[in-house]
Design a protein around this nucleic acid. Sequence first.
DNA 1: CTTACTTTGTTTGTCTATCGTACAAACTAA
DNA 2: TTAGTTTGTACGATAGACAAACAAAGTAAG
Lengths: 414, 414
Amino acid sequence: MMQTGSQDSVETGNADYIRMLNSGVVLSTIHSHEPISRAAIAKHTGLSRSTCSLIADDLLQRNLIREIGKDKSSGGRRGVLLTMNYDAGVTVGARLLADSVDCAVVSLRGDVLKHRSTAISYHADVDTYINVLCRAVSETIEEYHAVSPGMPVFGIGLGLSGLVDSASGESVASSILQWDHIPLASRAQEQLKLPVYIDNDVNTFALGELWFGHGRGVDSFLCVTVGEGIGLGVVINGAIYSGSHHGAGEFGHTRISDDPQAPRDALGIQGSVEAFSADPAVCAYLEQQIRQGASSLLEAQSGEISIDQAAEAARRGDALALEAFNRAGKYLGIGIANLISLFDPEMIILGGEGCAVRDLWQPAMEETVREQAAYGLHRRVRWKSVEFDDDLWVRGIASLVLKEVFEGRAQVRD
Amino acid sequence: MMQTGSQDSVETGNADYIRMLNSGVVLSTIHSHEPISRAAIAKHTGLSRSTCSLIADDLLQRNLIREIGKDKSSGGRRGVLLTMNYDAGVTVGARLLADSVDCAVVSLRGDVLKHRSTAISYHADVDTYINVLCRAVSETIEEYHAVSPGMPVFGIGLGLSGLVDSASGESVASSILQWDHIPLASRAQEQLKLPVYIDNDVNTFALGELWFGHGRGVDSFLCVTVGEGIGLGVVINGAIYSGSHHGAGEFGHTRISDDPQAPRDALGIQGSVEAFSADPAVCAYLEQQIRQGASSLLEAQSGEISIDQAAEAARRGDALALEAFNRAGKYLGIGIANLISLFDPEMIILGGEGCAVRDLWQPAMEETVREQAAYGLHRRVRWKSVEFDDDLWVRGIASLVLKEVFEGRAQVRD
DNA sequence: CTTACTTTGTTTGTCTATCGTACAAACTAA
DNA sequence: TTAGTTTGTACGATAGACAAACAAAGTAAG
């Protein structure tokens, strides 16, 4: 044999494949309907009772699920209830930020068991950053193991902003960390001696919602995050969509204004959603208005205004601050209405740091969406929002590992 | 049995499913690499030679493929070459427009064999429209059968603008035909006694490109059509994406301007791509500028200006007309740059009636995209465009039927 | 022309996963 | 106690994929 041939990357089926497929279906049915009996799984999935039994036995042997007591009777023999085996081990999620690493141990239930933040000097070089990152992860695991000794760790998830090639484990481009084609996953894996998975942080946020949050059982939805930037995680057919070059979901950099005076975002793009509605944009707008003589509680402020100060002023009734948040909401609404027109999602989930002040911008956002969405599609969208919580970020990132575990690729010891 | 149970719509696998899957893979390998031998198919797909042989025999028996002579020898026994059996039958595609029906017989190769347009009185009621439509289809088939008697017709595809539920065969909402929840497919099927499939016309355009055009073998791409409106067909993972409520791809109605003076589109949305860049928008802009006293070759024009007149003036060097097309291109560029940021497609295909004057707006469009796309993602997009041709629309619509045939759901007689 | 070597397509036997049916166990209600 | 349900398992049938063996058909060298 000279060469294996040019193997197109098409998915073909065989007995193994079909078992993997059905196994995954059974597992996710248990995950989303637990506790549930074998017979009920059969009804839900359309698989035969015998097949479900065989698969369940297999999952029990692999220690991925557990039997816990019996169901109520529905007229006959009581079913044996199955649940995920959430105590089989834990996962780790770490969020890579410009000046710190947020690291957490997360249970298979999605509970954050240990969470710590480690400072990193701004613009540290790549080697230093990776070293500090790995030490932070190791120490977090050690601290956790001091309390729960011997608990297996399935793997480490890393989340960062920018373009990330999750398949190859490479950070392709990151505006915050200034990284360019860094083989992050393999380098971290070398040091940590555990499987490492990486992805864009907004994608992982969406993944967390898909596994644990509002997105459970929802086929396609969008996660819009508001904060330092504006992010978008796209879930289509129950899977993250990241485009052909890992660049899908750059919602913050889409333009919604043709005004030559419009502000610019971090990438220098003018009139983008981020340039109007991200936290820094709100602050910059306020500073500019005050410089131009607008009256506000904040004008006493010397120099830069923080988003917290702006929110406080707005809550005290400051007209200028209220208008600044309104404006942000309005432009975010234009962008989100565009998303609805393009993706027609089943659900939109709002998240991110900016949700802490959601009450200040959401009304304006919703009004704009109502005015603008084509064919009234916005009325069919289910809206959800998550209270801001750092745990949600790391939980989502840890879900990267979870996906491997639950899809049967990770081996679970006793 | 009280009820069948709540059958989630998850895809489970069994022996039939896997054969269908592999059959489809083999067929599409033949389609994209024909003529090709059984052994070469095995190399391409990763399936074993014996499986490929069995599947090929099955396809031969079902008359979907043919053996045509032998391959050149590559050192040993010569392989038997297989191709699609393009002569097994034909399909029909009909495009439903406000005042006419475009109907064509299309070969399995994608060639348009017979094409005719039938006028329909503007705003005819639903019953009348469907009757005229069905008669137009029947007559087109008859005319074709007069030349090629006895050729089997696999089915009819119908394409129309607006929201279309292709699964249930319902036209949910159509701004052009003023239809609301019309069970179009079943009603046409009753009269025509042939399987009828329907979808949004831009989706079918994309489908045509996926099967026959630039999209062959491309995993995810976007089709942007410019004309009376601005449309978008989204292909993700080799399949049309139409959203949760059939509303995905309403690109024309996304907003790219916050100017309170911005024009409105057919749905009344202000500052949308369609309001700036569709053909009527270009004409309206010209008329407005002339009313305001701008000088132009077109000012002699009494009343309305057509897009053809505008194009002619531009080609003669008329500064105002040139600027009008430039402006349309610039705004389309903003919209397309947004699409790149959101979808990160492998390829973008430009089509539609407006492509007849593409030279007048494309440079401005491309320049805007270059300036604006985040992370330079636009450089990785492959650009294609199709010369405007009415045949492309009906070919795409007929592909709806083709999909059924090639995926093995339609039965092929001898 | 003969021989050695390749490649293709088919045949055969083995393996595995699903499914339907049958059946025992477990439970309810009359 | 009995009749009827529901659950979980066991067993045989079926179907698909695959590997290995094999015959057919070709090439190339001597």
